[in-house]
Design a protein around this nucleic acid. Structure first.
Length: 596
RNA sequence: GCCCUUGUAGUUCAAUGGAUAGAACGGAAGUUUCCUAAACUUUAGAUUCGGGUUCGAUUCCCGGCAAGGGUACCA
């Protein structure tokens, strides 16, 4: 039952009856009544003064009188300026609550057998260094969006495109060959991705030394960068790799293997996963073939120097390079190849790319190119563009050592959660394993919520010191609320209270109604979050719910309530707040612990 | 230069064109014989500037200012 729709219909009916004018239901604006006014739902009457030819207040009065006289679910009304505040009968709220209570998957839609398939690409790391804070935002958003789309009835395939080839990989490989002394993740006792990243950094500093030496010998900076022995060697290595040199290929496989093992560990800690992983070492070849096809079909053209281009000026864009003069592929080429493979592997009807906003232009161009090449979903691809994560010192820069490493950050959050919980005495009587498990859940909850609560399209500021907070609008606050409700419910079941249904005659007050209204909103919030690809909507909603419940919790003595009906009402509300919070947390990929 | 995005309390974030712009952190003052005090209560404090559309604009449109990103052989 949709109470807002019922009220909107009733108001439309009132307008027709009173002023003899037909009004479509969706022109009636219904909103939740503000706390400081009496009533449950509010209809805005300003838009109807043209029809009624009366003042907003008088129009509201007349509609209100009609509603009370003709609609049995409406108990009362009052008007304030152009706002008609309507009170719904108590029994209706109880009915709604019972309805929510009997629905275990409230707010979620089950995908049908023939549901359309949405493919969501996220993460997409390079294999020359470990994941950092920016990747964390990407991974959390991608994973959560997949969950939210599933909740809206889509069939979802999560995919990852790993950039496992190119000059940057060769830099790490070369530095390892020259300075590594055969070091392995086992011998050095570090994660594979961190080890490879270390050699990437070594390459960069050695390369810089060579550049400076050359500049001192009189070369310009530009010349020095191009002619330094290390960069020449790296380029040679890339060429050898492309030509299938056995030794180089083997080294490449080994070092990438180290990185994958490291990534796997980080993904596991973050709780994200993929249904299908693609590698650019496979897809760039397909991309080249597709570009050749486009060339043969006259979609693209070749310049005299041999480079291949697409003219996108007809679509408001510019010319775009697809193959270099030497025939090697560029970023765009690989993305076209990846798309082709995906289209062959899955019946994709909607493609979503979770990629940072610095690539907005790239994806505009990709949409047009895929469309020209005949991919049905090309035009409608969604570039889910999110803002960058900035640090108090500014942008993260690997060269300047201002990158926040993903593994370090996760460990730090968990460690802080543990220390804070110990200080508060939360861990008394628990064994080591239980302590670590709760610390893990809470630490990760804090990190995930902190990142997901922000509107994805905005740049966000991440202060490592201040972010590790467990008070206020944070994940742990919501987790705590959940755990506390669960504790109440455990005690209630020990008392053998049956709170399956609430008696329709019980009187409820404003706070209870407000919580029921919040619960009722959940469905709309999930639908809206799906439409806007915004986990932040759900994050802010469950925070509101938790905050509201905490006040409720302090105002009433739920288990000691004298009247049985009232006790059951408050238990059922508690139960459904917990249920909804848990569902919301699940959509964000955050765990909601039973106790903490 | 051109294109895109963003400007809200000291700070980090909210607000389908609707009522007195909400929270949290930080600041000030309180609450624990009571189901988990990682909680609750009280208090001070904000829409970048100038126009326009509208009964009504943080929201939509135009212009200025500021920040970030992109700008064709980097990914």
């Amino acid at each position: 039952m949709n109470i807002e729709l019922l009220v909107a219909q009733a108001v439309a009916e009132a307008l027709e009856s009173l002023y003899n004018q037909t009004v479509t239901v969706n022109t009636v604006q219904i909103q939740k009544t503000k706390r400081e006014f009496e009533g449950d739902l509010t209809a805005v009457t300003f838009p109807f003064v043209k029809i009624s030819k009366k003042s907003p207040e008088q129009t509201g009065e007349e509609i209100g009188q009609f509603l009370v006289a003709n609609k049995n679910f409406i108990a009362n009304y009052n008007t304030v300026k152009g706002f008609l505040n309507i009170s719904i009968k108590h029994s209706i709220w109880i009915e709604i609550l019972n309805n929510i209570n009997s629905n275990s998957a409230f707010g979620l839609q089950q995908p049908k057998g023939d549901a359309d398939l949405m493919m969501i690409e996220y993460s997409s790391p390079n294999t020359n260094k470990p994941l950092h804070l920016g990747h964390i935002r990407n991974n959390l958003l991608g994973f959560s969006i997949a969950k939210i789309q599933q909740a809206n009835g889509w069939k979802v395939v999560k995919t990852n495109i790993v950039n496992d080839r190119g000059i940057h990989i060769c830099k790490s490989m070369l530095a390892w060959q020259l300075f590594g002394n055969g070091e392995t993740p086992e011998s050095a006792a570090v994660k594979g991705d961190h080890l490879v990243g270390k050699y990437y950094v070594i390459f960069d500093s050695e390369y810089k030394k060579q550049i400076n030496e050359l500049i001192n010998k009189g070369l310009s900076e530009e010349e020095a960068k191009k002619t330094a022995p290390l960069i020449i060697q790296a380029q040679e290595m890339l060429l050898k790799w492309e030509n299938g040199d056995t030794e180089i290929y083997k080294l490449w496989e080994t070092m990438n293997g180290w990185v994958y093992a490291g990534f796997e560990e980080t993904y596991k800690k973050l709780g994200v996963n993929f249904d299908k992983i693609y590698y650019e070492s496979d897809t760039y070849i397909v991309g080249k073939q597709e570009v050749e096809r486009g060339l043969a079909e006259g979609i693209f053209y070749r310049r005299t120097d041999g480079s291949v281009w697409a003219n996108l000026s007809g679509d408001g864009l510019e010319e775009k390079l697809l193959l270099r003069a030497d025939g090697t592929s560029v970023y765009m080429t690989q993305d076209i190849g990846t798309a082709k493979l995906r289209y062959a592997d899955f019946p994709v009807s909607k493609m979503v790319y979770v990629v940072g906003n610095e690539q907005n232009y790239h994806f505009q161009a990709l949409a047009v190119l895929l469309d020209k090449l005949g991919f049905a979903w090309g035009r409608s691809l969604v570039h889910f563009s999110y803002g960058m994560v900035e640090l108090p010192e500014g942008k993260m820069k690997s060269r300047e050592g201002t990158v926040v490493d993903a593994d370090d950050l996760i460990d730090e959050m968990v460690q802080t959660a543990k220390e804070t919980a110990m200080e508060l005495g939360k861990m008394d009587g628990l064994n080591e394993q239980e302590i670590n498990e709760i610390a893990r859940i809470v630490g990760l909850g804090a990190l995930k919520y902190f990142i997901l609560k922000v509107d994805p399209k905005k740049n966000m500021l991440f202060n490592p010191k201040e972010s590790i907070d467990f008070n206020g609008n944070t994940g742990p606050f919501i987790q705590y609320t959940h755990a506390r409700i669960k504790s109440v419910l455990r005690k209630a079941s020990q008392q053998n209270i049956d709170f399956g249904n609430v008696n329709k005659d019980v009187e409820i007050n404003g706070k209870e109604k407000y919580l029921i209204q919040l619960l009722l909103e959940f469905k709309n919030v999930v639908a809206q979050a799906g439409k806007e690809f915004s986990p932040a909507l759900i994050a802010n909603y469950i925070y509101d719910l938790a905050k509201e419940y905490n006040q409720f919790y302090h105002d009433y003595s739920i288990l000691n309530e004298k009247a049985d009906d009232l006790k059951i009402l408050r238990l059922v509300i508690s139960q459904n707040v917990a249920k909804t919070v848990k569902t919301g947390m699940d959509l964000l990929g955050i765990e909601a612990p039973e106790r903490m």
